[in-house]
């Protein structure tokens, strides 16, 4: 009798999950699959498009090759413009995101109303995609890089601001108290107590965002906000696929290079 109980408690074969855990796990699988199937079936996807997809893809590949490399001389200026848009936009972000981050951090904000405003600004900025901001600013400033710069800046505020606000909330309060105890004003506490603690995070985030922004600014031209996207969009609309190939290659190189640079800088900061 004793042996039987022991066997029941300690089975001979090791199993990772108890039966109850297994049951819960499978229930989750079923729920996830159900959600996936429900969403897919509601999308009314014309499945017969899949039938000739490989033909279409092959046709596209055939038209894209070989790339017309003589086009590359026309790409230098738009590429520089693309980088400019990303860089200036990111610099603007630095100045705008900074005060908002202080509003959105619980320990530096004035009261719950300003905290909410800060949070709302950050979420609003992040929820609207760069392209949509681009649409807005093209309507305001007209087509061109100026609209692109503002679009980049407005989208990045939310990203940078959120991470910086989180960093501010996690600072060491001792340093702040020490500065406060010397009778420093609010601004002085901010500049001497808080800023040096979050500065590495700010720089790191800004550099990280810059390399995302390079990627984003390559497509801003689709809505007319400057950069290489304008050329890319017009080539696509004119079915000049061999030029598209060259542009994609150029974009690939620039984005990869920016990612590389940003990784090196971030490594040195931290």
């Amino acid at each position: 009798m004793n042996t039987e109980r022991r066997v029941r408690k300690y089975p001979d074969i090791w199993q990772r999950f108890s039966p109850r855990e297994t049951l819960i796990r499978y229930a989750w699988y079923i729920v996830i699959v159900f959600i996936g199937v429900w969403a897919l079936s509601n999308l009314d996807i014309p499945w017969f498009y899949f039938l000739d997809a490989h033909i279409q893809a092959g046709d596209l590949a055939y038209r894209m090759w070989p790339p017309s490399f003589e086009y590359i001389s026309k790409l230098i200026d738009p590429l520089i413009e693309t980088i400019h848009i990303a860089t200036i936009g990111t610099m603007l972000t630095f100045f705008i995101a900074f005060p908002i981050a202080f509003l959105a951090a619980r320990n530096t904000t004035f009261n719950s109303v300003t905290w909410f405003i800060g949070r709302f600004l950050l979420v609003g900025s992040r929820s609207v995609n760069t392209i949509v901001w681009g649409l807005l600013f093209v309507a305001i400033f007209g087509p061109g890089p100026l609209a692109g710069i503002w679009a980049i800046a407005f989208r990045s505020i939310g990203f940078v601001g959120k991470l910086v606000a989180e960093a501010i909330e996690e600072i060491n309060p001792g340093a702040v108290e020490a500065i406060e105890a010397t009778g420093a004003s609010r601004l002085q506490v901010l500049m001497i107590g808080i800023l040096p603690q979050v500065l590495p995070v700010i720089y790191g985030t800004i550099v990280y965002r810059w390399d995302i922004n390079i990627r984003e600014s390559t497509v801003l031209g689709f809505v007319g906000a400057g950069g290489i996207g304008i050329l890319l969009y017009s080539s696509i609309n004119q079915f000049l696929w061999r030029e598209v190939t060259v542009m994609l290659m150029a974009v690939f190189c620039v984005v990869l290079a920016s990612e590389f640079i940003s990784a090196i800088i971030r490594q040195r900061i931290s």
Binding site: P46, Y49, L60, L232, V251
Partner: peptide, 25 residues
């Protein structure tokens, strides 16, 4: 991973629109 990370979603979307036509697909 590197290829699909480098190209913005919009660029990828254009190619899929060309291949599969307009719509959610």
């Amino acid at each position: 991973i590197i290829l699909s990370r480098t190209f913005h979603e919009i660029i990828v979307a254009i190619f899929f629109v060309k291949i599969f036509g307009f719509g959610p697909i």
